[in-house]
C-alpha cells in the first residue's frame, strides 16, 4: 500500500452535455509538493479541481485526500484542505475579519480571531480587517481569499487562477506568501494558472491538460527540454 499523498486522484472522468470535460485524469500531489495544473481554456482544469475537492462528482475514478476517500470521508478530508479561486467574490455584507472568522470556525478552529490575524499578517493586509468585502480592490480580494484558504494551515492548498488580473507587485506577494507557507508548514500546493512565469517560479512539477487528458507531467525543466522550447509558455502554445 502506498503512503498517503496530499492528493491522489485516479482515472477521473467527467462528461457534461456538451461533451467529455475530463477523460481519465490521474493526478497525485505528494505531501509538501507544489504542482501546477496547466492547459488552455476548456482543457478540464477547473472540473478536475472541483472533482478533487468533492464539489463535482466524477462519472468514474477515485479521489483521496491525505488518505481520506471522497465522498465518504469528505468532511475529514476537507478539514485539511484550503481553497480559493480568483473568480470567487467575497461576501458583500461581511467585514474581512468576520469572513475570516466564519471560515476559521467552519474549519473547526478554537481561536478564530488569532488565526484570522495571523493569516492577514502573513499577506501584509492586516489593515483590511475592518473593511467590507465590497470596498476591496481585486488584488486585495485575492490576498484576503488566500488568507482565508490558509487560516487553518492546510496540508493541501488548492488555488484556481489565484493571481488572475493581479498587478506584478501583488502577484509577487502572493507567490512569496505561498512559497513561505509551503516551506514552513509543509503545505502541498495545487495551482492552476495561465501565467507561465509564475508557474516556473512557484511550482516543482507541472501537469499539462489538453482536451481533458494529461498530455505532459514533469518538472518545468523536463517539460521544456522534452518539447524543445525555451520556456513553459512555448510548451503551452505547442500543446494547446
Amino acid at each position: 500500500m502506498s503512503p498517503p499523498a496530499a492528493l491522489r486522484a485516479a482515472g477521473l472522468v467527467k462528461s457534461y452535455r456538451r461533451g467529455r470535460a475530463v477523460d481519465g485524469v490521474d493526478l497525485t500531489v505528494a505531501l509538501g509538493e507544489r504542482v501546477a495544473l496547466l492547459g488552455p481554456n476548456g482543457a478540464g482544469k477547473t472540473t478536475t479541481l472541483l472533482m478533487c475537492l468533492g464539489a463535482v462528482t466524477p462519472d468514474a475514478g477515485t479521489v483521496e485526500i491525505l488518505g481520506h476517500r471522497l465522498p465518504r470521508e469528505r468532511s475529514h478530508a476537507l478539514a485539511r484542505v484550503g481553497f480559493t479561486a480568483g473568480y470567487l467574490p467575497l461576501p458583500e455584507r461581511m467585514r474581512v475579519v468576520e469572513y475570516l472568522r466564519l471560515y476559521a470556525r467552519l474549519a473547526g478552529l478554537r481561536r478564530p480571531d488569532v488565526a484570522a490575524r495571523a493569516a492577514l499578517d502573513r499577506f501584509g493586509v492586516s489593515h483590511l480587517a475592518r473593511a467590507m468585502g465590497t470596498e476591496l480592490s481585486s488584488g486585495q480580494k485575492t490576498l484576503v481569499g488566500i488568507a482565508k484558504a490558509v487560516l487553518h494551515r492546510p496540508a493541501l492548498l488548492v488555488l484556481d487562477e489565484p493571481t488572475a488580473s493581479l498587478d506584478p507587485d501583488v502577484a509577487l506577494r502572493v507567490r512569496t506568501g505561498l512559497r513561505e507557507i509551503s516551506a514552513e508548514l509543509g503545505t502541498a500546493l495545487l495551482v492552476t494558472s495561465h501565467n507561465m512565469v509564475e508557474v516556473e517560479r512557484l511550482c516543482e512539477r507541472v501537469v499539462f491538460l489538453s482536451a481533458g487528458q494529461v498530455v505532459a507531467n514533469g518538472t518545468p525543466a523536463q517539460i521544456i527540454d522534452r518539447y524543445g522550447h525555451d520556456d513553459l509558455e512555448g510548451v503551452f502554445l505547442h500543446l494547446s
Partner: peptide
C-alpha cells in the same frame, strides 16, 4: 507563530452551526 487548536466531533459541529447563524 501561534499554535492551531481544533475542535472535533460535536463541538466542531456546534461552532459551525453557530458560525453560519452568525453569518446570516
Amino acid at each position: 507563530m501561534p499554535t492551531i487548536e481544533v475542535y472535533h466531533g460535536a463541538a466542531a459541529s456546534f461552532w459551525r452551526v453557530m458560525a453560519i447563524a452568525r453569518r446570516h
